[in-house]
C-alpha cells in the first residue's frame, strides 16, 4: 500500500514537472534601469517556448511608450534548446528617452498557440522601470553658454570615401598628364605588349632567307622580289646605322654610305642592288636569273659584313665604318675604340 502511494506521488511530481516545463516564459530585461537624458539603453525581449508552438511577437514601430523611443532593433533570433524540444527567441532594442522622469515599461504580451489548440494563449513579461534623469542644475552658479556638440572621434570608415576620391583624382590627374605628354611627343598613349625586337642583322638575314624561300622572281614577280629585297636592306640600314633609308631615294642612300667610309667593294655592291631594283621597280626591267640571285647574295653578304658594327655612319666622326678590302675583314671605328670584324660578323678589339 505504501508502495502504491509512493508511486502515485512520484507520477504526480513528474506530471507537475512536465506541466511546469511546458509553460512559456516571457522575459524583458534592461541593461540598466537608470540613464541620463538622451543616453541609449538596451532592452532585450526573450521568449522561451516548446518547439512547434506558434508565437506572435509583440510589434513596435518607433516608440515603446510615449517617452521611450526605439533607435534601432534587431531581428527576432531563435535558438533551439534541450535537443530541440524548446526554442529560445530573442529580440534586442536600443532605446532612448529625452524627457527626465520615471517611466514604467508595461509588460510585453506574447500570444502563442500549442499544436492542436484552437485559440491563442498569452504570456507576459514583468513590467520594467526606467529612471531618466537630467543633469543637476545649480542655481547658485552663473549662467553659461550652451555647450557645442561633443566631437566624435574621426574613424577610418568616415575617412574612406575621401581617401577613395583623393586616389581617383590622383589617378585621373596622372592619366591626363601622361596622355598630354605622349601627345606632345607624338607617341601612342598605350603600347600593346610586343616581343622584343631581334638584332637588326638577325632580322635582316631571316627576312632575306624568307624572301629566298618565297621564290618570287621564279614565278615572274620581279617587282615584288626587288621591292622586298630593298625594303629589307632599308630597314636594316635604319635599325643598324640610323640611316632613314625608308624615306630616302637610292641616290641618297648611296650618298650616306659613301660618306660612311665603307670600302668601295661594299658601296658598289649596294649600289648594284639598288640600281637593279630601281630598274625593275620603275623601268619594267626583267633581270636575268643570275642577276636576281646575285642581288640577294650581295645583300646577305653586306648584312653579314656589317653585322657587328656599331653606331651611326658619319663621315669621319663617331661610329664611322671602315672596311678593309685586302684582309676581307673590316674595322669599325666606334668613337676611339677599333674593332676588327671577320666575314662572319664576329668582332674583337685590336
Amino acid at each position: 500500500m505504501s508502495q502504491i502511494r509512493y508511486f502515485s506521488i512520484t507520477v504526480a511530481f513528474v506530471l507537475l514537472s512536465c506541466s511546469l516545463r511546458s509553460q512559456p516564459e516571457a522575459i524583458a530585461r534592461l541593461d540598466t534601469n537608470a540613464m541620463l537624458v538622451g543616453d541609449q539603453v538596451e532592452l532585450t525581449l526573450s521568449f522561451l517556448a516548446s518547439a512547434g508552438w506558434e508565437v506572435e511577437w509583440p510589434d513596435f514601430h518607433d516608440t515603446i511608450t510615449a517617452h521611450i523611443e526605439i533607435i534601432s532593433k534587431t531581428r527576432v533570433d531563435s535558438t533551439q534548446l534541450e535537443s530541440g524540444t524548446q526554442v529560445y527567441m530573442r529580440q534586442m532594442f536600443r532605446i532612448t528617452s529625452f524627457d527626465s522622469g520615471y517611466y514604467v515599461i508595461p509588460p510585453f504580451r506574447f500570444a502563442y498557440r500549442r499544436p492542436g489548440d484552437t485559440g491563442y494563449m498569452t504570456a507576459e513579461s514583468d513590467p520594467l522601470l526606467l529612471s531618466v534623469y537630467s543633469l543637476p542644475v545649480s542655481t547658485e552658479e552663473a549662467f553659461r553658454d550652451i555647450k557645442g556638440p561633443l566631437g566624435a572621434p574621426f574613424t577610418f570608415r568616415e575617412a574612406l570615401p575621401w581617401i577613395i576620391v583623393f586616389l581617383i583624382l590622383l589617378a585621373g590627374g596622372y592619366l591626363a598628364f601622361y596622355l598630354i605628354r605622349k601627345r606632345k611627343q607624338s607617341k601612342p598613349a598605350f603600347k600593346l605588349f610586343t616581343r622584343p625586337e631581334l638584332p637588326p642583322h638577325i632580322q635582316a638575314l631571316e627576312a632575306l632567307d624568307k624572301l629566298r624561300e618565297k621564290k618570287l622572281w621564279q614565278t615572274g614577280l620581279y617587282k615584288e622580289y626587288h621591292s622586298s629585297l630593298t625594303e629589307i636592306l632599308r630597314v636594316y640600314l635604319f635599325r643598324k646605322f640610323n640611316i632613314h633609308a625608308l624615306e630616302m631615294t637610292s641616290g641618297e642612300i648611296m650618298e650616306h654610305l659613301v660618306q660612311s667610309s665603307l670600302t668601295e667593294e661594299y658601296t658598289k655592291s649596294m649600289e648594284g642592288i639598288l640600281w637593279l631594283a630601281d630598274m625593275v621597280k620603275f623601268a619594267r626591267e626583267e633581270p636575268l636569273p643570275d642577276e636576281n640571285e646575285q642581288s640577294l647574295d650581295l645583300a646577305t653578304a653586306f648584312v653579314k659584313a656589317t653585322a657587328s658594327l656599331n653606331g651611326e655612319t658619319h663621315s669621319g666622326g663617331e661610329g664611322a665604318i671602315v672596311i678593309h678590302n685586302d684582309t676581307a675583314a673590316m674595322t669599325a671605328d666606334t668613337g676611339g675604340e677599333k674593332k676588327e670584324i671577320s666575314e662572319e660578323g664576329e668582332g674583337h678589339v685590336v
Binding site: M279, A283, R284, E285, E286, P287, L288, E291
Partner: peptide, 8 residues
Amino acid sequence: MIQTDIKE
C-alpha cells in the same frame, strides 16, 4: 637583262 620597250 631582258630589255622591254623602255630600251626603245
